[in-house]
Design a protein around this nucleic acid. Structure first.
Lengths: 226, 226
DNA sequence: TTATATTGATAGTAATACTATTATATTTGT
DNA sequence: ACAAATATAATAGTATTACTATCAATATAA
C-alpha cells in the first residue's frame, strides 16, 4: 500500500501527521484530494470542508489524520523534497566529474521533469506546482521555528547541503555555496511564477523555458571565477 | 498632511484603496497601526478587528478605507516599492560609470538601510521587514492577475526594468538582466529570512550580513563574463 | 465472537471577513 | 452663524472557517 503513489518508498516525518495517511485508504484519498484541491483552489481557499465533500468523507475524519491544513501542505512539501533528494542521489551516483554532477543537480532542481522519463512520483508535476505556488505560505510564518524543530524542512536542507558540497569540490574557496543553491532553488520557482503572471520581471515566457539555462550559466560563471 | 510619514510625497495607485488613507487622521492611523500589527502578529493573524481595537476605532470605519486586509498589504508593499524607486533615482543621478550605478542599486535593493543616513520613510525599516516576511502572501495568489491589471505591482516592475537597463549598458549582450535582478531582489529577502530561521540554507548568520556582498560579487561576475 | 479500532453523522463554538443601519460628531459652504 | 454634507462611532447581523466533542455504525483482529 505504501507504493500506491510512488516508485520509491518514502519515510515521512511523523510530526507532520496525526495518523499516517499512507496507511489507509482514506488517508490516501486525503493526500490525492488535497493535492488536487490545493492546485485548483489555491491554499487560502482550500478547506477541510471542501476536501471532505470532494473525497466523500467528513471534516472530522480528516482531522484524525492532520491537525490543520498547514500540516497537510507541510506534508506535501516534505514529500516533494524527499523525492528531489532521491532523484539527486540517483543523478549523481557513479559520476566522477563534479561539474557534471552539479549540472545534473541544477537540472533536477530547476527544470520541469520530463513526464516520460524522469518522474519518481505519480503526482510529481502537481506537487511541483504546489511547491512553486504555495510553499512560502507555510515557510514565511511566525511558527517556522517550531515546524523547523519538528523537522519539517529537513529534506530541503539536506538537498541544499548536498549540492553545496559539490560546489566546494569544484571550488573549495568559494564562500557562499549554500546561499547560491537556496537562491537558485527559490529563484527557479519564482521565475516560473513570474513568467506566468508578471513577465516583465523575467526574460522569458511560458513557452520558452530559460530557467535551467539561466541558472546553469550563472552558477558555473560564479563558481569558476573564484 | 501628505508629508506626515515621509520626506517625499508619494502618489499611490488608487485601485489599492477605497478612500485615500493619507487624506485623514484616521487613515494615517490605519496605516501606522497596520504596519505595526502586521509586523508583530504576521499577516495571517492580523485582522481588522484587532487593528480597530489597537487604533481605537471600529471595523466598519476601516472598511471604508480598504476593501480587505490583502489590499492594505498591497498598499504597504507598493509604498515600499515607490520608496525604493525614489532611492534608486537619487542613487544613480549624475553618475557616469554604469558599474558604479549598478553597485549603488544593488546596495539599495539588498542591504538594510542605515537609519542615520539612508531612510526616506519614517517606517522604512518596518516596511522592509513586512516586504521580506509577507509580500509573497499577496503575490502568490489566484488573483495576482487582477491585482496586476490594477497596477498593484507597477513600482516593483519599474525598479526591475530600470536596473536591468543598467546591466545592459555594462554588457549589451547579456541575455537575462530582468531574471538576474528579480532573482536578486527576492533572493536577498529570502536569505535574510533563512539567516534568521533556517541558517543551514545560508552561509551567514544574523550578525554578519553577507547579502550585499554575495549579490554584488555574483552579479558582477555573471555580467562581465559575457 | 467479543473486543478494538476506524469511520460516519451530527452538533456545536469561537473567530473571521465581511455588510447594513442608524446615530452622532465634525467640517464646510454660504 | 447655520444648514447641509461628510466622516466616524456604535451596534447588529450573516456566512464561512477552523476547529472539538459525542455517539452510532462498521470493519478488523484476537
Amino acid at each position: 500500500m505504501n507504493q500506491l503513489f510512488s516508485k520509491m518508498s518514502i519515510q515521512m516525518n511523523e510530526h507532520l501527521y496525526l495518523k499516517d495517511p499512507t496507511s489507509s485508504d482514506l488517508g490516501q484519498k486525503i493526500l490525492r484530494g488535497s493535492i488536487s484541491l490545493i492546485s485548483s483552489l489555491g491554499f487560502e481557499k482550500f478547506t477541510f470542508k471542501k476536501l471532505a465533500i470532494e473525497i466523500d468523507t467528513t471534516e472530522a475524519s480528516i482531522y484524525r489524520y492532520f491537525e490543520s491544513k498547514q500540516k497537510i501542505l507541510l506534508y506535501l512539501i516534505n514529500w516533494y523534497w524527499s523525492c528531489m533528494w532521491f532523484r539527486i542521489h540517483m543523478g549523481t551516483q557513479n559520476i566522477p566529474d563534479a561539474e557534471v554532477r552539479l549540472k545534473n543537480c541544477i537540472h533536477i532542481l530547476t527544470a520541469i521533469p520530463d513526464p516520460t522519463q524522469e518522474l519518481v512520483l505519480d503526482n510529481e508535476l502537481e506537487l511541483k506546482q504546489i511547491v512553486i505556488n504555495e510553499s512560502s505560505k507555510v515557510l514565511l510564518t511566525k511558527n517556522v521555528d517550531d515546524e523547523n524543530k519538528n523537522g519539517a524542512f529537513t529534506e530541503y536542507k539536506k538537498v541544499v547541503e548536498f549540492v553545496s558540497s559539490i560546489i566546494l569540490e569544484i571550488n573549495p574557496t568559494y564562500e557562499f555555496p549554500n546561499m547560491l543553491i537556496s537562491t537558485m532553488i527559490e529563484g527557479s520557482n519564482q521565475q516560473r511564477f513570474f513568467a506566468a503572471h508578471l513577465p516583465r520581471l523575467t526574460n522569458m515566457n511560458q513557452h520558452d523555458d530559460l530557467v535551467e539555462s539561466f541558472f546553469t550559466e550563472t552558477l558555473l560563471k560564479v563558481i569558476k571565477h573564484g
